[in-house]
Nucleic acid binder design. Structure first.
Lengths: 223, 223
DNA sequence: GATATTTTTGAGCGATCGCTCAAAAAAAGG
DNA sequence: CCTTTTTTTGAGCGATCGCTCAAAAATATC
């Protein structure tokens, strides 16, 4: 067996090949989805590498080759979660001509949380915000940033409503957006409690009506 | 083990020498307070026995002799937390003749959360509700029960407001109480975010005004 | 002081934690 | 087929987890 001590040719990189993903046993997106489900359900600390190995059907080496570390995998899951949540929010908002109607519809839909089969009724971003400490500062800040993105969407919708005359000019979209964000956080945390489905629906309905009551010329009030 | 059946606080008078606790190096109440601070700050899973040993300045054996297990200690801390939170709530409510004013004052005071030095701005009961899983079901249910106690206080206040004519007869105290509970949960979770103190004050003010707007004859609306 | 009882200590248990890396297996190129 | 390169495996690392218990120290009773 002959071996060359030196490379016979200097190979310039082949960018096209390097961009072509070789077929792997595990689909990265599918693995990330499974990890997301697990992290959303159990939280960061209560999810062990053993749990991930079982759920992803991957051995530790493969997980680390694909995602780097438990912390990095968690952060990717957070981003994926926020991306889907934002898409869902947009889907509902776009289905309504009125910005206020869209926001109210989003709240009402949250009233059905107890019927849906989800890893958790609470928001994964809020769970992370409350669970993570200084040792996971990067992930916590990421959750905060992603929440900011959702709040920005609320603010944009209130601003649009005001521009269209739906909302009185003296209403502050930033303030309303923050309030709505806090209400959604509260509603979804409340949904995590051991309550009747009807109670959650009533709560969501009340919050939705509060948003609708902002409409100019409305009689207002928290009916 | 017998000692756990004995009262941990001295009762005035000394009628029963056999029930008099012997002087111990560690005060149980003080230890519990320290544990509460740690659990509130870091959560259940992120708080290790090593952390508790350091903070309480107790060796594992002493901790287990005094509190049974990490889980039991956590549950005692939860109860202590709720007891103090409820006392604080009552203190504010009692300072106002009007039930609605009392509730509004409670909300406004939460707007100052970022100035206060606390283990966490978020509610420990909510943190626990979102963090704990089936393996800590007992503690999670305890958190849920304690939250129910706070909500009952809100409902009672709204009922009192209605009885006094502050609130319109068609308003449902149960529904209003649930809504207020969700708003407080949301406000305090929002306070955990990386926001300006003024933004939190504005949010609390808006929520307080919503409660005040419930007053009969008020023009209502989410100003 | 002597004895009985309670409290505290701290070494260390078995289990699990997140993670590494040399070797094996699989896929791509010739 | 053989060679090269990438992916996957899985035993096992050092650290830490919650926790136990015999011994030591401290306190109460006589």
């Amino acid at each position: 067996m002959l071996t060359t001590l030196l490379p016979d040719t200097l190979v310039i990189g082949q960018p096209l090949d390097s961009l072509m993903p070789r077929t792997t046993r595990h689909n990265r997106q599918e693995s990330l989805e499974k990890a997301l489900t697990l992290f959303w359900l159990k939280g960061f600390h209560a999810t062990s590498l053993k749990d991930l190995e079982t759920t992803l059907d991957m051995r530790p080496g493969s997980i680390y080759a694909a995602f780097g570390s438990k912390d990095q995998l968690f952060q990717e899951a957070l981003s994926r979660y926020a991306q889907r949540a934002l898409a869902e929010l947009d889907r509902i908002l776009w289905a309504h001509d009125s910005a206020l109607d869209g926001l109210a519809a989003y709240l009402r839909q949250l009233g059905g949380l107890r019927e849906r089969e989800l890893p958790s009724r609470a928001c994964m971003l809020v769970k992370s915000l409350l669970e993570l400490g200084d040792r996971e500062a990067a992930a916590r800040e990421k959750a905060d940033t992603l929440l900011d993105g959702m709040e920005a969407r609320f603010i944009e919708r209130f601003a649009a409503a005001r521009a269209q005359g739906e909302l009185a000019p003296d209403q502050d979209p930033v303030r309303l957006g923050g309030r709505l964000q806090a209400e959604v956080m509260g509603l979804r945390s409340y949904a995590q409690r051991d309550i009747e489905s009807d109670a959650l629906k009533a709560l969501a309905e009340d919050m939705a009506q509060s948003v609708e009551a902002l409409r100019s010329g409305s009689q207002g009030g928290r009916a």
